[in-house]
Design a binder for these strands. Structure first.
Lengths: 205, 205
DNA sequence: TCCTAATTTCATCACCCGTGGAAACTAGTT
DNA sequence: AACTAGTTTCCACGGGTGATGAAATTAGGA
């Protein structure tokens, strides 16, 4: 049990550290998390954190690798026909956040993005890879980014109220009901008609 | 310049401290903000922070007193006839966030609410006082809290994308355009027809 | 068996933290 | 001039921080 050398398989301790860091970043926030506390929760010497991740931001970046569930869940939604894709995306997001493991990572990213450039960059990456993917099939280039941004507002707002703050009816209702409530909006942002933008050409149709 | 005794009017230094704390909480976050840094930015001895606000959470609570602009702006929106109220509320929120002084406070509340119970409580208070007020006039009791919660998701999502993260098209467009884009959704949540809830009585109409 | 590389621990550095108490200073009253 | 109340500064405590570098230990290949 005690003694110095290697213990178990390569990366086993690193995984324990990662898991502990995820929990702490997600609940306490990045700034309020100390490497020592992470090490303690992981049952590991603090120096080991430095050995594997070098610095605190290094640990943050490792923590924020998006889970593979992302690709799968959202790609599936993106493949749906346009008429059902809005609802499919909302449901995919809800499922991701109902899973504690994914939720921890996402929570860390969301809360840290406002303060840490590394987290903000990861957020942008998730945004382009996930939300834009949903929008990109079968829609004109000119509208893609705007529609993706609108969808993002609706989904992010749901997440903040329901999963981060746990405030309001939206936090108490079952996930299916939330999907029923939000799907029409997301579907509208995805494929409905939008007001004219300042930079728009006049509609040729 | 140096020397110990009183300096200027009563509360002048306290205000400088409050302003500095607002800036730091908003940009760096609560946990990452040190009292010493606040004092330094305020041009004040760190001990003075302790003298006026006693503890760090005391300072937080003082910082999070909502600006009076809140009452005014949102109450005005709440008085609008139901058909225009959604748009009026969106515009009121946008105006609040475009004003740096209000935005600093709100940003501190939003980002700290996930970690500090005091901030979460303030968030709930803002939510009930502001969003619920908009919804309460002329709508059945049974729907109020749900509609308020839905409106909250849309507005909060806009705020996160546009003002906190500054991500996506929604962050780059002029405020008026954003209002054009989101007003229909908010209006729908406010007064449109919603899918049946699990707990609903069957519609008597 | 010896050697080598990878892992874990230990000890420590220099620094910043929140809090609190005591002293110095100011202004106003008596 | 003496006193009082309110402000501001100074100082110090105990403790926790992120980050290193060196030593100890293990496992595996030659």
């Amino acid at each position: 049990m005690s003694g110095r050398g290697p213990r178990g398989e390569r990366g086993e301790q690193a995984d324990r550290i990662l898991a502990a860091a995820r929990r702490s970043f997600a609940t306490r926030g990045y700034a309020a998390t100390s490497l020592r506390a992470v090490a303690l929760e992981a049952g590991v010497d603090p120096g080991l954190v430095h050995y594997y991740f070098r610095t605190k931001t290094g640990l943050l970046e490792a923590v924020m690798q998006p889970p593979e569930a992302f690709g799968a869940a959202v790609a599936a939604a993106a493949e749906q026909p346009l008429e059902q894709r809005g609802r499919a995306f909302v449901q995919a997001c809800l499922r991701l956040w109902e899973d504690p493991a994914s939720a921890e990572i996402l929570r860390a990213v969301i809360l840290t993005a406002a303060q840490e450039p590394a987290a903000l960059q990861r957020l942008r990456q998730l945004f382009s890879e996930l939300v834009l993917a949903v929008v990109s099939h079968g829609l004109p280039d000119a509208e893609r980014t705007l529609r993706a941004s609108l969808i993002s507002t609706q989904v992010v707002g749901m997440v903040m109220n329901r999963y981060i703050w746990q405030v309001g009816d939206i936090a108490a209702l079952p996930a299916d009901t939330v999907a029923d409530l939000l799907a029409p909006t997301v579907q509208h942002y995805l494929a409905g008609s939008l007001p004219a933008q300042p930079g728009d050409r006049p509609d040729p149709g």
